[in-house]
Amino acid sequence: MKQRVGVIGGGQLAWMMADAANALGIELVVQTPNPDDPAVAIATDTILAAVDDAMATAELAKHCNVITFENEFVNLEALFPLEQQGICFYPQLSSLAHLLDKYHQRRFLQGLGLPVPEFADVDLPVFLPDFAQLGYLEFPIVLKSRRLGYDGQGTFILKAPAELEGVMEQMANQPLMIERFVPFERELAIMAARSISGEIITYPLVETQQEQQVCRRVVVTQEFDSSITQQAEAIARTLLESLQVVGIFGIELFLTTDGQLLINEIAPRTHNSGHYTLDACVTSQFEQHLRAVCGLPLGKPQLLADTAVMVNLLGFEHSDSDYLSQRQQMADIPNAHVHWYGKTVSRPGRKLGHVTVLLNQTSPASARSQALDLASTIESIWYP
């Protein structure tokens, strides 16, 4: 009998598990609210319900051996009784409890001795008049919603105290945290997985490029100094070992001008910065995650090309177009792999697909510039 994995969430991250699941002989059962969500098309069974509906998750558990997560929009308090009844969740709920609230995540990481920006809890009605007392924070500062923010939503980079008033109105009654703005040289990311037996693997360290706090490009080269790579791998191993977690994590990092790494955020799941692994690595992040949660040996994370670049295809208009012409043009680029998520509605900023291009025989000196040139070519096709 095939092993069945329940996935809470039916977006593109669950959808991209399909090929790996087929190859491993695993069936996916998805809990998601909308029948047109991407993963519904590839699931063996679907529970149509909100991702934070614990009663639906109890039903999901009847159809699978283990339950995992595509996103963090879950109600942990409602899920803990299910775990106590013997339902298996990977990553474990106790691990997620340290990470879903960004302020709690920061405190947990700090307690492990891992490097993070200076931060503080914030109660805006009290915080605004007392702002001057937080003398260790200078503008610009970063204000974040502690829960449910993604793709830049709920994150504000404020350049002056006067900007706080507008944010206070927009984020009224939401728990917030504040961070020192990090004048980083680059933003980096690393994917890491841990198995049930405790085996840990890390993927190559990559550069991520954001615009309006949304990931636009991921550049995969082998240019980083060994000291930087070793810092990233040590951070990943310390985190996964401390949590004793099972599954794959995405770790977003700031590289400072003096060559140090600071943790930006932790994603306890497959992650946009790891999409390149579908085409550029021996084992994709999606296969690796399924291997981990199903108790299988972890796969090899090695690159299949010298260099790779991944470009997100973001919506730029309200439309129901499938953008077939643009996708065909991008597919004609040598060694390009176009992934279209099958979403029926486009809106500005929505992730509709991504393109990964592999480059071989690139020199370390020119790899990044070649990758960025290709990213520009893709974006000139995609954006009007």
Rank of each mutant, 00 (worst) to 15 (best):
S319K: 03
L143G: 09
H354K: 05
I157M: 11
V126A: 15
A308G: 11
A132H: 06
Q12G: 00
A56H: 05
T202D: 01
T46E: 06
L278S: 04
V126G: 13
T377N: 13
H289A: 03
L24K: 14
I8P: 00
V29E: 02
F69G: 05
R269W: 01
L109F: 14
C64V: 03
T46P: 05
G299V: 06
M17Y: 00
A58I: 05
Q222G: 04
V66L: 00
I26M: 08
T256L: 10
A292I: 06
E265G: 07
V167E: 12
D52Q: 09
L109Y: 07
G349E: 06
Q212F: 08
H275D: 01
L158M: 07
R237V: 15
H275E: 02
A49W: 10
S242Y: 09
V309I: 13
H354P: 07
L24P: 12
T32W: 02
N360E: 03
R269A: 00
I201C: 12
G259H: 10
L290F: 01
K102R: 15
D373S: 08
F254T: 02
L79Q: 07
G152P: 09
S325G: 14
P38I: 08
L372H: 08
C281T: 04
T46M: 13
S226I: 11
L278G: 00
V74C: 04
M171G: 06
L243E: 05
L313C: 10
F224D: 02
I141L: 15
T356A: 07
Q92M: 12
Y136I: 03
N173D: 15
A41I: 02
V74N: 05
I200K: 07
C281G: 08
F73P: 02
Y150T: 01
Y341F: 15
W382P: 14
Q288R: 07
T229D: 04
P33V: 12
L240S: 11
N173F: 05
G299T: 13
I157L: 14
A54D: 11
G10N: 11
H98T: 09
Q260I: 08
E72Y: 00
T344F: 09
V245A: 10
H318A: 15
V357A: 04
F254W: 07
A132K: 11
C64W: 02
A61S: 14
E27W: 01
N264V: 02
Q174F: 12
A20C: 03
F249R: 12
